[in-house]
Design a protein around this nucleic acid. Structure first.
Length: 994
RNA sequence: GGGCGCAUAGCUCAGGGGUAGAGCGCUACCUUGACAUGGUAGAGGUCCGUGGUUCGAAACCACGUGCGCCCA
């Protein structure tokens, strides 16, 4: 036999790694058997990440489901992998380069940098995977995937999937390039999506400035109260404007007031002056009406800077107001273009011309006065304020809480900018995704998240998917120079912000395809176009090369260059449920495991990830990626604060694993994962569940010491001892409960069902009750009880395994040479194992012992003293029960002998128990007054119960309307209480005799 | 402004139309042969407030109060 004597404690440190290795090398994590497929794709952690509590919770729950379903015979695939995490990874590697004092990213160039990131990924990108293993995650690691593919090889499935989806969406018009206002991150110098912007309330200011009316015009400014009484009347030569961002005044295109605002009616349509910049070139802008300004907010008049504010952008679009860009990629004031005087003249001419302004042309105009050029935007703000103030045009400064947008990764203030970006038509893709939830094809658990999902999906904006980064899936689009009407290249200079509009775009999965497209496209412009085989790096290179080659043969040489941008990380994560399974190929895995069975995730990425998987899954596979989405809470610290790096309140799951074992951490997380609640982690709690695993360990040790071994000849249906019938019954009930609760994603209830059964039933009672059997000499009883104990322990190990895989597997293996616990068959509920009679009888025994113990303590009977028990007024069955459980009662209630009698002896403490009285003659210890007080107290309590029931029963409405069973139950309860009262009265009477 | 959630024992939280629960903490006793990472017994609750529905509400509904989160 391989069994070894168990040590006093479970040495989780040594066992965890050994057991994990054994499972993995046995291939136990791979989908096996012919069972129904069960599939979960892991929410891929960032490759830069290390395991935090949120991962620990998320993966514990997934592992519970996977281990559970695997034991239930399903063919389980838990698909693991990591996310390339565009910005985060680029940031990490850049920081590392800086620490090593290596040349910067821009110095070494794109290719070398990307190579460095790959190197980093191979060397350091596996941290979190190893940490997941320590948690016990039973992922099929042989199928591990990375959202970027391996080494970016174009042949890689992940890359193919991304390219195909992009090109397909493009060809259907669902991906397009557009000039819109985006959230620009001046630190990373990239656009980011709305979701990556964090709006925070910060202390700010609201500046009120005078915008003088053109030509010194004046008007009568009248303010009225609610009743129409005039409260202010004065002549003004200005309009008062309030702003939180004075530096953007330089780009104002208009001042807007609400159409119903009578105060400004006299000056609508007139011009006013932006009170900043060189006096002789002050720009004049029109006062217009729009529904956007709120007459009750500030002065009611709003400056419109279409290029740097999302609300203003809408107003500007509606009113054909030019949007002047003021800043560069780093968020500094522009210093390109001609001197201010010239640029301002351009703007003036533009306004005079009227009509819809040309966005590219307007973008080329730099309206930053010469003295502000090149300044950081916040420095420029100070200067603008000071200059206006010096001129006496500042009315007031208010301290004010303002909402400010920050980049969630960079932490810097986001600058709205008009740029060219790629957008996904999310509105169109959202339709089937909404429908899938409406029709119940995909359900949220708990279901209240459905509303959150709808709200987001119904108001979804175009998804900006291009990022100006180097690390990521490069956008599969190539450009060629545009061709003028005269067949010549457009010589407009493309720039970062606004690509020349006459560029030709070829969206293709490869350069080869792009070339093919280019050949057809350019043929339309004339016969003299030759498509070069060489890809170039930029528009400028394309032009230079074309000119050079053209000199030789007089032909138009077309050089293509690829879009330098990469895709939003979430674009590739959105394909995860099928890209990991081999799509776009029709693999057997895809066929078997898509759609997946359930998605387990936290609510903070419903929008980022769940919504996108729904959209892209339905788009590519025509089926929703999962029928259920289980949303768990966040892990918060002991004060209920969200754990975060910046707050420094994170608890490291690995430290807890080191200290208390992975099982303890897992159980803690599961036990607290109540639906709709955050999980609060605290060390004492983890410690408590470590104690629980020790408890189980010692129960197993006890079983081992008493030679309880799995006995194949033991049939739980045929147990003869009440004790064993009862534990079979209880284990069966526990199996039913744990199964039901896991199925319903009520992990906390499943955990607590296990906890209660193991500790409060099996350890506290069954093992205690079994001790007299093990110590007695009834060999048959001993044999059966050993087998029953082993059987029950096996059920326990199985039911607990998904929660505490390590300790359970270790115990399982120590009892017999057999197949691993993790691949054993789940104990399902078996109606044939039910035995209510046995349960009733054992509860009778347990209650009697508890009752005796209770009075012993109250009467201060010394623990060591063994006292006799006389049951008074019991039935014949009671007498038989006493006899059957004689050993147990004596041992656990510390009794010397047990007998029955018609009347209680004098000087006895009396315990009312199930219609009888257990008399304990403890004359030596008894304190008559105390005993009397105890009985009176109990009597009072019982009388109150009876009174409550009587009140209910006296209520005609209750008797008539309540369900019959409920009324009957009350009658039964009353009868029991009354019987108890009689016994108590008798006991008190006997006490009086003393 | 819109949405979601929470309020139950000292603390952290389950639960849920008829009988108030757990863990930790606290008190007393116990090193009894699996376990002191343990055992036994106990104290501790106007289930936030006000109305409503109901025979019956701590639970369901409405409103209020306080707190938290998400979106704008």
């Amino acid at each position: 036999m391989s069994e070894k004597q168990l040590d006093k404690n479970f040495d989780f440190k040594a066992a965890e790694a050994r057991l994990y290795e054994a499972w993995e090398s046995a291939g136990a994590f791979k989908p096996a058997g012919e069972g129904e497929p069960y599939t979960i794709v892991i929410p891929p952690p960032n490759v830069t990440g290390s395991l935090h509590m949120g991962h620990a919770l998320n993966n514990t729950l997934q592992d519970i489901l996977c281990r559970f379903e695997r034991m239930r015979g399903k063919s389980v695939l838990w698909q693991p992998g990591t996310d390339h995490a565009g910005i985060a990874t680029q940031m990490v590697v850049e920081r590392q380069m800086m620490e090593h004092q290596e040349p910067r990213r821009t110095e070494i160039g794109r290719e070398a940098f990307v190579e460095k990131v790959w190197k980093w990924r191979h060397e350091s990108g596996g941290t979190i995977i190893n940490q997941l293993k320590r948690l016990g995650a039973s992922c099929d690691w042989s199928r591990e995937r990375f959202t970027m593919g391996e080494d970016g090889s174009a042949d890689d499935q992940m890359v193919k999937a991304v390219m195909k989806v992009f090109v397909d969406l493009y060809n259907e018009g669902l991906i397009y390039r557009d000039k819109r206002l985006v959230n620009w991150d001046p630190k990373f110098e990239t656009a980011i999506s709305d979701l990556e912007v964090e709006n925070r309330e910060v202390d700010g200011h609201m500046w009120h400035f005078k915008y003088p009316l053109a030509g010194g015009a004046t008007y009568e400014y009248v303010e009225k109260d609610e009743d129409g009484n005039v409260t202010l009347r004065e002549t003004r030569d200005y309009i008062s404007i309030a702003t939180t961002r004075p530096e953007t005044m330089l780009g104002d295109g208009a001042v807007a007031v609400h159409p119903s605002d009578e105060r400004y009616a006299p000056i609508v349509g007139k011009l006013c002056e932006i009170p900043v910049g060189p006096k002789e070139h002050r720009r004049l802008i029109p006062i217009i009406t729009d529904d956007y300004p709120d007459p009750d907010f500030g002065s009611g008049a709003v400056k419109i800077t279409g290029a740097h504010d999302f609300n203003d952008y809408q107003v500007a679009k509606r009113g054909d107001i030019p949007m002047y860009r003021l800043m560069d990629m780093k968020g500094a004031m522009r210093d390109d273009g001609a001197p201010y005087a010239e640029e301002a003249a351009k703007a003036k001419a533009l306004v005079e011309k009227g009509g819809t302004p040309d966005t590219s042309y307007v973008d080329g105009i730099n309206l930053v006065p010469d003295e502000y050029r090149g300044l950081d935007r916040f420095e420029a703000r100070k200067r603008v304020i000071a200059d206006i103030d010096a001129e006496g045009l500042m009315i007031e400064v208010e301290d004010k809480k303002i909402m400010q947008p920050f980049g969630d990764r960079s932490g810097v203030v986001i600058e709205p900018m008009i740029t060219d970006q790629w957008y996904v038509d999310a509105k169109t893709l959202a339709k089937p995704a909404i429908e899938a939830v409406e029709t119940g094809k995909t359900k949220f658990v708990p279901e209240n998240w459905t509303k959150t999902y709808y709200q987001w999906m119904n108001n979804i904006e175009p998804w900006c998917v291009s990022r100006q980064l180097w690390w990521g899936h490069r956008i599969p689009a190539w450009y060629g120079l545009g061709v003028d009407e005269d067949g010549q290249y457009d010589d407009g200079k493309p720039n970062r912000f606004l690509t020349n509009r006459r560029l030709e775009t070829f969206c293709a999965e490869s350069f080869k395809d792009a070339k093919r497209q280019a050949k057809d496209r350019y043929a339309k412009f004339g016969a003299g176009f030759v498509i070069a085989d060489k890809e170039v790096g930029s528009a400028q290179a394309a032009l230079d090369n074309a000119v050079l080659d053209g000199e030789d043969d007089g032909k138009n040489h077309v050089f293509l260059w690829r879009d330098p941008d990469v895709l939003d990380t979430w674009f590739s994560s959105g394909l995860w449920p099928f890209s990991t399974l081999g799509w776009p190929d029709e693999t057997p895995e895809l066929k078997k495991h898509y759609p997946t069975s359930v998605l387990v995730t936290a609510f903070d990425i419903i929008f980022f990830w769940v919504a996108r998987m729904m959209m892209l899954g339905l788009y590519t596979q025509k089926k929703a990626p999962f029928p259920e989405v289980y949303i768990h809470g966040l892990v918060v610290d002991e004060n209920g604060q969200k754990m975060s790096k910046s707050k420094g309140n994170g608890v490291d799951p690995l430290e807890l694993i080191d200290q208390f074992g992975a099982d303890a951490l897992r159980f803690t997380l599961a036990a607290q994962a109540a639906q709709g609640r955050n999980v609060r982690i605290s060390e004492p709690r983890v410690e408590g569940y470590r104690n629980f695993s020790t408890k189980l360990w010692n129960a197993a040790r006890f079983a081992e010491m008493n030679e309880c071994k799995p006995d194949p000849t033991f049939d739980p249906k045929k147990a003869t001892l009440t004790l064993n019938k009862w534990i079979v019954h209880e284990a069966n009930q526990c199996a039913a409960e744990v199964t039901r609760e896991i199925e319903a994603y009520r992990f906390n209830d499943a955990a607590s069902a296990n906890y209660k059964f193991i500790w409060n039933v099996f350890c506290d009672w069954y093992l205690e009750l079994a001790k007299p059997v093990f110590m007695g000499d009834d060999e048959a009883a001993k044999k059966e009880t050993r087998a029953a104990a082993a059987w029950a322990l096996d059920r326990i190990l199985q039911l607990l395994h998904p929660f505490m895989p390590f300790v359970t597997e270790e115990i399982w293996g120590s009892f017999a040479e057999r197949e691993a616990l993790m691949v054993s068959q789940w104990p399902s509920f078996d109606v044939a194992l039910k035995n209510e009679d046995a349960a009733t009888e054992m509860n009778w025994v347990i209650d009697l012992i508890s009752g005796v113990r209770s009075v012993r303590q109250e009467m201060n009977v010394p623990v060591a003293a063994k006292i006799p028990l006389i049951l008074v007024g019991g039935t014949k069955e009671d007498a038989e029960k006493l006899k059957r459980h004689d050993d147990v009662l004596k041992r656990l209630a510390r009794l010397s002998e047990i007998s029955t009698a018609d009347a209680a002896p004098k000087g006895a403490v009396q315990v009312v128990h199930a219609g009888a009285v257990a008399a304990l003659p403890v004359a030596d210890f008894i304190d008559i007054a105390a005993e009397k007080a105890r009985l009176v107290k109990e009597k009072d309590k019982t009388e109150k119960e009876v009174a409550g029931i009587d009140k209910k029963l006296a209520n005609k409405n209750f008797v008539d309307k309540a369900p019959k069973e409920v009324v009957e139950a009350q009658h039964t309860r009353r009868a029991n209480f009354v019987e108890q009262l009689e016994k108590l009265d008798a006991a008190l009477a006997r006490l009086a005799d003393l």
